[in-house]
Design a protein around this nucleic acid. Structure first.
Lengths: 347, 347
DNA sequence: GGCGTGGCCGACATCGATGTCATACTTTCG
DNA sequence: CGAAAGTATGACATCGATGTCGGCCACGCC
């Protein structure tokens, strides 16, 4: 008669469909509401009743339906979305890790999606996440122009931008001190006596890259050095092009005596190009990386895990009701000297 | 009168609460169902009606409530869960990346959680994911004993195990050819003339580690070599202990002439210990890593992104209705010679 | 003109849980 | 002893969407 017993009277444990609370209640011989109370440890449930309900739930292998609960409780999930580049890039995975750890402390779960550095896909992903009713959305944006998020932001889904500032929109952001870090790198090379310094940068249209270029140029201008100008290479977007570009730079006459690469990918390419070189130029790379100590690579380091953590923290504050103006957290950088950046300029 | 207009008659765009389909319908002057039909491009909606509904939706900034839809449509989400170790470990992030790419092709989204290599937390995460009604659950298990998943597995939530086989449970799995890879590493070192070979391994209770130990031992026994026995070090679980262990090994007399490290963490530690060593021993590490080419590190490589992809594929087949017996996909390995593994035994 | 057909639309039930409120039965206490 | 308060429970509405079914109307055809 009840849905929880099959026709032959045996309890239908193997039912394909997952049991509902109604079935548990029927098996325990109580009402739906009482079963709900028992399983949620609400007050005013007789001890014996509670036991019967729990036994029935165990027997059926009952598992609460979080979707239904969320719908009833307010149509918003415990999920926080992250849209970033591919996780095989250690920068993104470090950020994701920091986010995940922080969220977990607040009972929130991270949902990740890869925008493939494509603005169109990114928009679609934002839409998908919003339909899923994520509690907050963290984005390492691929493109510019985030006006389309403006309405959403005002409707209670907080956005936090990572690594790249929001464009056309007020929103929380966690950024790296790109200008300062790059300036420090430039100064470091100047101090080692370098004048002909090559700058190998990624797509200049991306704000962090532009910041790093600016910072480097600032250092050069402060030192009254123009020797870098012939060696500026931007829009180098992948490891192989970086390797090739560095090789080409080294064949110039006169060749640069030092290199500054503005992200981990480019640094990797440069290291490949420099491998086995008899008299390698000095090298400083933006972004720290695994084994940089073993290789002896001088870098502009920053704490990417902390970036993720801060972003998650900002989001959590919004989720918890904070509604002040947009905030920006800046992650500091520091030059870590490991050898490659201290090679003197060939005399 | 309708909920979508505020008391003063203006359309209430700035309402804090996100608009529901009912409000859109009211604003468009049609029934709830008709609005639903219009926005879902169902047939039998007059062109003019459809337009009115879409305009109303735009005006209100309406966004479908995926939670409600999922509840109605079958109480199962488009999410697939991944439980693994920390994403800062490139192995896990590569796996996650492979999974994410594959899932996206099928309109599924990846939800990640870090088990901190803790079996208790892992169980809790599994519970949380099941309550969230994920469509499938991919696990890189931390501990042994997965019997508690048996009921779930039979209830339509497919499980796929990565890297470590399910214990006490029939389930799909994607594993690495640990034995074969380690045997090849052992043979490689033997072929270079080594006899005193140190094996530095992680926790031996973890199946992949045990497999790598076994494979190595097989190679030694096939070569009739016992020279490794004094240099076996297991249960080395972090980078620092690996570094220390390798230093200690090198101070032995006689010292081993070669090292085999059984995962990327241990290889990192070994590389640190070997740095600047006048006459470093040969080194082969299990797991390929970024910049291994620059460092010249010989490794037993395998395609971790493919691992993720295969796991996602298995899961997707189950989601799509496949219900055959449990399958195991094995990811092959290959030794990539880059120098460190080819250093000859000191005569 | 009558009737069948198809297009368009809305009322209502439903997914699986939780919140509200009513009710029956105890217990407590003046 | 009777009223008030408290306990245990259940009926029913509800979250926001979709599925079912039936009604109305226009049109075409005999």
């Amino acid at each position: 008669m009840t849905a929880s017993r099959s026709a032959d009277g045996a309890v239908d444990v193997a039912a394909l469909r997952r049991p509902t609370l109604t079935q548990v209640a029927a098996l325990a011989g109580v009402s739906l509401k009482t079963a709900s109370r028992a399983l949620n440890d609400e007050p005013n449930v007789a001890e014996a009743t509670g036991r019967r309900v729990r036994e029935a739930a165990d027997l059926l292998g009952y598992r609460l339906n979080g979707i239904a609960r969320e719908l009833r409780r307010g149509a918003t999930s415990a999920l926080v979305g992250l849209i970033s580049g591919d996780l095989t890039n250690p920068f993104y995975s470090a950020v994701a890790s920091g986010i995940e750890r922080e969220l977990r402390q607040h009972g929130l779960q991270l949902v990740t999606a890869n925008n493939d550095e494509d603005a169109e896909l990114e928009r679609a992903l934002v839409d998908a996440f919003l339909e899923r009713r994520v509690r907050a959305l963290l984005v390492v944006p691929s493109g510019a122009g985030h006006e389309y998020l403006a309405i959403e932001g005002n409707r209670g889904v907080p956005f936090v931008f990572l690594d790249r500032p929001p464009d056309g929109l007020e929103a929380d952001a966690v950024l790296i001190d790109n200008v300062g870090g790059a300036r420090a790198a430039g100064e470091h090379l100047i101090a080692a006596g370098h004048r002909r310094i090559a700058l190998v940068a990624d797509l200049a249209r991306m704000a962090p890259q532009q910041g790093r270029i600016d910072g480097f140029v600032q250092a050069m201008e402060a030192a009254g050095n123009d020797g870098w100008r012939p060696y500026l290479r931007t829009d180098v977007h992948d490891v192989h092009r970086a390797e090739r570009t560095v090789r080409e730079l080294l064949e110039l006459d006169p060749a640069p005596t030092a290199l500054f690469t503005t992200n981990n990918r480019l640094t990797t390419g440069a290291l490949r190009a420099l491998r086995g070189h008899p008299q390698p130029p000095a090298l400083i790379g933006f972004d720290d990386f695994d084994l940089a100590d073993v290789i002896g690579a001088t870098v502009v380091a920053h704490d990417s895990v902390a970036m993720g953590r801060e972003a998650a923290r900002l989001a959590h504050q919004r989720i918890s009701g904070f509604s002040g103006p947009a905030r920006t957290v800046t992650i500091s950088t520091s030059v870590i000297a490991r050898g490659s950046g201290e090679r003197p300029a060939a005399s």
